[in-house]
Design a binder for these strands. Structure first.
Length: 888
DNA sequence: CGTGGTAGTATTTTT
DNA sequence: TACTACCACG
């Protein structure tokens, strides 16, 4: 234990931070606003527990949400307590559950071996359940092409239920209770809500409320789930207060919209009664899905938590063992806990010895809760004090990141929020004060533009200027609400030769070259069937794939011949004088026959033209064996040739990465069983039908030092000297929520994300508080299709983005100064990628799997590695950046 | 040329 | 769910 290092770092803390580190016993909630040194406190507190008590490192449990957060935590601890850090249990919630399942297999799945199911398999299992639904089941509706309409929504509804920690049985009993309550309310409602509400009815409504409040709801199956009437009466009481105060029916009308509806007979009822049938069906589908998954030996991510919760609640021995082991528990990002995680936590913490006051430290910030859509329940942090007796609450008030100006603006925004800890608890004051984060001159700039294009141009211009002034690119970030906007701005930055670092998700299945493989696979299947007609439909497309390098004229000639002679394309190709065409025909026929018996990987290898062999063969041998009868697909040579790499390295590596993801996903699919070409097509079809994307996370990194492009969600926890927040408009940051086909009753802790003003405020707050010194807020007034955008109402009139005429004039002058910068060849991000922009990804992540696992042991890859010497990354950094850039 | 019906389409991200 | 684009119809 390096207590010296501890002392040194402890001394740097302010008094509140010290108090958090020193409070070791009992429940403690640390409210850590942006830039308040949260991670440092967590690690110092762990060290302090080890110093002050005789606790062993293995008796401390740290729970995080992401792997990277866990890694950061471990790293910090390593510096502090060296090798002891490895003995502290640092887990994500999921990793913790995996660990428990592995260490106590006898409590899980009867000790049987289970493996995780990918989303596609999950959907297939669920579809199996749907097939057993009767035709009049509310979830069984189908669309001729899209299949079951509710399939995807049911899938996510089940996931949400699991995240809320509800088993099928518990969910069922919740709706059953609700049904009883609904019956009662429906009877009462008619008398008063059948007619239009009028001011004169307020006293009547009061009476109604009084009567209804006396109703005794059936007791809840779970302590944290209230009755429906609790929410009903509570919200009505609030609305009624408001209505009487302003003498207006408006709030009541809004409330009626939300709670009431007319049934098929035109009678006014609780909205929930119309949803009831769907929910009952959902409960039954949920149960069957679980059973089927179990029977097949599958689990999904959500199950891991649910299984451990189940085991801990039913097995005292297991619960005791874990409670004994983990005497000190620390939870990071507490505002992001969902109810399943909360239940798990309560189970580990409820050791009788603690008498309701566990040694639990939760760190979080309710103002930065932006993961509601993942089931996070902000109520968990808001209710901490009620949950644990005599919990201490420490609010950190020093911000070591930003200038006071930036903090003030951020506070100004977030204080508009309603459901905040600061409002709930009397002694929580979150007035952040800047503490030394304001070195250098800080500034906040508001700029309004007419169009997005001008906004992008301005930002590119401004970044260029800052870089010229000597600011490092890596200290600048552009933050947007969604990826679309970031993709839009990339070409503008590229045009000014600004290097960018952008982690984007790409749908592998939309890659044109992956599409080519898929089309060929579809063709091979149709060829194997009797309907050759269908096969003909694919050939025009296949022959025009660029890698064959067949002239258009040739394709056209075959087409002409086919329609004239009414023979199939394939027979014309076989009879063609063009040797290449006959070879391709033979190649495809041969492949089609092989695809009937051979596994998919071999077929893909042949389509791609990769040489397949477990034993390395030399180039010569390959030539010898293939030259006299069959051609090898030119696919590989065309897309992976050295020339292609030299010309378009970005595209080259992007495709290599896509191919890897594609092959890997296929291998994960149907875990363990041998896949045929049909499975590939099914795999792709299921993706398309359910609009699932097969994501490849690419880092578009165009230089060692680069400007970071991020969504607000990804930006959480990071900081930058200078931050540009894109599109400060209501339509962007305060837009409408995303609709769901299945909605849950009000008493379930499952709410659609982003539908309250608070959600919007928090997200924008996170974006603002990333900035240390310079903050640029920009907006534009006219959207893509001429839609008028409104200024972001979070910012007050003095901060009005659109009316800041001065800035606009200055800007116009600026743009006039540089007419050449206006317009130009700004294209799309795809074009940027396909020109000369290098694309760098971690060498090991990108290449090692291909070399080790996938049998693409082709020479070019070795060449690539040889050329690279120090690995592709070094190569790209040293050489590629000097490659001639595309002229703009 | 206005109206009404309807089909199509929309976020954020982790394990 | 909520908006828009589009088309048919009067």
């Amino acid at each position: 234990m390096k207590s010296l290092e501890f002392t040194r770092r402890y001394k740097k803390l302010d008094s509140l931070q010290k108090k958090a580190v020193d409070t070791i016993e009992g429940p403690l909630l640390v409210i850590a606003g942006p830039g308040s040194g949260k991670t440092e406190i967590l690690s110092l507190r762990v060290a302090n527990i080890l110093l002050k008590t005789d606790t062993s490192p293995s008796n401390i449990l740290c729970l995080t949400f992401t792997d990277s957060a866990a890694a950061t935590m471990r790293q910090r601890l390593l510096n502090l307590i060296s090798s002891d850090a490895y003995r502290v249990s640092i887990f994500t919630f999921h990793a913790f559950c995996t660990d428990v399942i592995e260490r106590f297999p006898e409590y899980f799945y009867g000790g049987a071996n289970f493996h995780s199911a990918d989303p596609i398999t999950q959907l297939e299992v669920l579809e199996g359940v749907f097939k057993t639904l009767s035709y009049d089941d509310p979830l069984s509706k189908t669309h001729p092409e899209q299949g079951y309409i509710y399939l995807k929504d049911t899938h996510s509804a089940i996931s949400n239920l699991k995240k809320a920690g509800l088993t099928p049985k518990e969910f069922f009993s919740v709706i059953k209770n609700n049904e009883k309550e609904i019956e009662f309310f429906n009877k009462e409602l008619i008398s008063i809500f059948s007619e239009r509400t009028h001011r004169s009815q307020f006293p009547l409504l009061r009476k109604f409320l009084k009567r209804v409040e006396k109703y005794k709801a059936p007791s809840s199956p779970l302590p944290h789930i209230h009755s429906l009437s609790f929410y009903f009466t509570d919200s009505l009481a609030k609305v009624l207060d408001e209505a009487e105060e302003n003498s207006s029916t408006k709030p009541l009308t809004v409330w009626k919209e939300k709670w009431l509806a007319k049934d098929e007979h035109g009678i006014i009822v609780l909205k929930d009664s119309t949803l009831l049938l769907k929910l009952y069906s959902l409960a039954s589908v949920y149960e069957q899905y679980m059973e089927k998954m179990y029977a097949l030996g599958y689990y999904d991510f959500d199950d891991m938590l649910l299984e451990v919760i189940k085991a801990l609640s039913s097995n005292e021995t297991l619960r005791y063992e874990l409670q004994e082991k983990f005497q000190y528990i620390l939870v990071d990002e507490f505002q992001d806990t969902n109810d399943a995680q909360m239940r798990l936590l309560n189970l580990i913490v409820s050791h009788p010895v603690n008498e309701g006051r566990p040694n639990l430290m939760a760190v979080g910030d309710d103002d930065q809760a932006i993961y509601k859509f993942q089931g996070a329940q902000i109520d968990n942090i808001l209710r901490f004090k009620e949950e644990y007796r005599d919990a201490q609450i420490i609010t950190l008030t020093s911000n070591y990141r930003s200038t006071q100006d930036i903090i003030d603006l951020a506070l100004h925004v977030i204080q508009k929020g309603e459901n905040r800890l600061e409002r709930r608890l009397p002694n929580v004051h979150k007035a952040l004060v800047s503490a030394g984060g304001d070195k250098g001159k800080g500034e906040i700039l508001y700029c309004g533009f007419v169009s997005a294009r001008e906004e992008y141009e301005y930002i590119a211009h401004e970044i260029k200027k800052l870089l010229k002034e000597g600011l490092s690119p890596s200290s600048i970030a552009v933050i947007a609400r969604k990826h679309e906007y970031l993709e839009n701005i990339v070409p503008y930055l590229y045009q000014k030769k600004i290097t960018v670092n952008y982690e984007r998700q790409q749908n592998v299945l939309r890659d044109s070259r992956i599409q080519e493989i898929i089309v060929i696979a579809r063709f091979l299947i149709s060829l194997g069937r009797k309907d050759k007609v269908e096969a003909d439909e694919f050939l025009p497309e296949i022959l025009s794939f660029p890698f064959w390098e067949i002239p258009r004229k040739t394709v056209w000639e075959i087409s002409l011949e086919a329609s004239k002679s009414r023979r199939s394309w394939l027979s014309i190709m076989l009879a063609s004088k063009d040797k290449k065409i006959t070879q391709i025909a033979h190649f495809l026929i041969d492949l089609s026959v092989r695809s009937l018996s051979e596994p998919i990987e071999y077929i893909i290898d042949s389509i791609v033209g990769a040489h397949v062999s477990l034993i390395e063969e030399s180039e010569d041998e390959i030539k010898k064996s293939s030259s006299h009868k069959k051609i090898q697909s030119p696919f590989k040579e065309y897309y992976f040739g050295k020339e292609e790499f030299n010309l378009k390295p970005a595209k080259y590596l992007l495709f290599l990465s896509s191919l890897r993801v594609f092959v890997y996903a296929l291998r994960e699919y149907k875990h363990g069983s041998l896949l045929k070409i049909d499975d590939l097509v099914t795999f792709v079809n299921t993706h398309e039908k359910n609009e699932l994307i097969l994501a490849d996370e690419n880092t578009l990194l165009t230089g060692k030092e680069a400007v970071t492009l991020l969504t607000a969600h990804k930006a959480k926890g990071l900081e930058f000297d200078t931050v540009f927040v894109l599109h400060c408009q209501n339509e962007v940051w305060s837009g409408k929520g995303f609709p769901r086909k299945i909605s849950f009753p009000a008493n379930l802790p499952i709410t659609p994300a982003g539908d309250t003003n608070d959600d919007h405020l928090r997200l924008f707050f996170v974006a603002l508080t990333r900035a240390k010194r310079l903050l640029f807020l920009s907006s534009h007034a006219v959207g893509e299709r001429g839609k008028i955008m409104s200024k972001l109402s979070f910012l007050t009139a003095e901060n009005d983005v659109h009316t800041n005429k001065k800035v606009e004039e200055v800007l116009q002058a600026k743009l006039d100064e540089h007419p050449s910068e206006k317009g130009g060849n700004v294209t799309s991000i795809e074009n940027v990628l396909s020109t000369a922009l290098p694309f760098i990804k971690d060498e090991k992540a990108l290449l090692k799997p291909i070399l080790e696992d996938y049998t693409m042991s082709v020479t070019h890859l070795n060449n690539f590695l040889n050329v690279v010497r120090g690995g592709p990354q070094t190569f790209l950094e040293q050489n590629l950046l000097r490659f001639p850039q595309a002229k703009t």
